[in-house]
Design a protein around this nucleic acid. Sequence first.
RNA 1: GCGAGAUUGGUGAAGUGGUUAACACGGUGGAUUGUGGUUCCAUUAUUCAAGGGUUCGAUUCCCUUAUCUCGCCCCA
Length: 438
Amino acid sequence: MNRVKPKTLPGFMELLPEDQILFNKMCDTIKNVYERFGFVPIDTPVLEYSEILLAKAGGETEKQIYRFSKGDNDISLRFDLTVPLARYTAEHYDQLIFPFKRYQISKVYRGERPQKGRFREFYQCDIDIIGNEKLDTIYEAEVPAVIYTVFRELDIGKFTIRINNRKILNGFFETLHTDVDVSEILRIIDKIDKIGIESMKKELLHLNIQEEEVMKILNFIQIQGSTQDVLDALQNLNGGETLKQGIKELCDVIQNLKKFGVDDAYYKIDLTIARGLDYYTGTVYETILDEYPKLGSICSGGRYDNLSEYYTDKVLPGVGISIGLTRLFSKLKEMGILQRKEKSLIKVLVIPFDEMRKSYALEVIKELRKAGIASDIYLQDRGFKQKLKYANRIGVPYVVILGEDEENKNEVTLKNMETGEQDSICLSKLLQMFMSEK
RNA sequence: GCGAGAUUGGUGAAGUGGUUAACACGGUGGAUUGUGGUUCCAUUAUUCAAGGGUUCGAUUCCCUUAUCUCGCCCCA
């Protein structure tokens, strides 16, 4: 036999059941909050025509996309959920109800070099709110309100939603005397947390920006303090319409955040947030865990003016955000923030003592399941010790033992696996106990 | 795409130019067949990524290839 060594592709996360249970719980929490805020679910194909995904033709995207042909079709794996959403919205425009609030939790694929905390297959948990021609700016505050609720409920420690506005950045850079492309500068500014202010200064000078202008940039992005301090400082800046507009939007968002009930300890204005994706045109967000800033952004997004411009004439402004769940989960695991271990989801395991007891045991499990109690039955013919050992390993809290005595008396023995206590009771009492516990 | 390092069983790993490759975890079986998580015993890699070379002899030295990890780029 020529055996193939079992192995998974690098950059593809695979979990053991106990971790998968944890992962799914996080997923459920996120989904639950999304739905509570009125987002409807959609699902799009993993594969799309390459021309759809590459319509925008950003250089990086093309390099990282998984692309292949099958017959005459040029096909690619989706690398995010926003581009498929753009296509979806354009394609089903006439059947959608706007503002269209949808969420999607799905896997995406990026063919890049895997590294720590970067995956080639990972889950994104997206929400977007898309308007038909117009979208009120108050939605730019609702999105962080959703994120605030999600991370509060995930209970993974104190976090900060950092907020900025691309119009402020663009408006500010208009006032500079330089030919350098704004996106070049933004890219460097975005890296400040990673490389520090000195390296950033060097890189800016390296772009042939005058020292005087570089100092202006540094002074600008170092505007800090309380939300009110930053807003005041911004009001004092000289600039054109774009800057003014950006500042107004930022003020609105901050005010509305309060109305949505977001605790002001959980967000702050951060002028260094730029976001690489160039489709953002207004408010942008990034979220970090306060205790683990090195982890980087666990969730980011922003406002865009025209989602589907490559697919339709309709103007569809929107705002959205995405949680990179796979990375978040793997980091949280690595740092030991997630611990609760459950190897199994069942409440009770039914163990027939011997072969003769199987039909009685099946009778009992049928009733448990009918009553909606998550339960399982051990059906392998092995020693009784082995059966209990199995129960112990899967971590089930209760075991129901069925032997000759029990069957004769029409009872069951319920054993608490933690304390070791056990008691013989009748079936209806057993059902009652678990039903009331639910 | 560029740069650096690694590659020993199911996992974490120690190790050496020379007859049987530590140790730990995990797995399996057992310690008077109606009671598990502890303990004890047994067992668990003819083989050190693949191919070639040096050598009496290589898992250990050299070369090539492959793979992986970590940076850069970019990003969740």
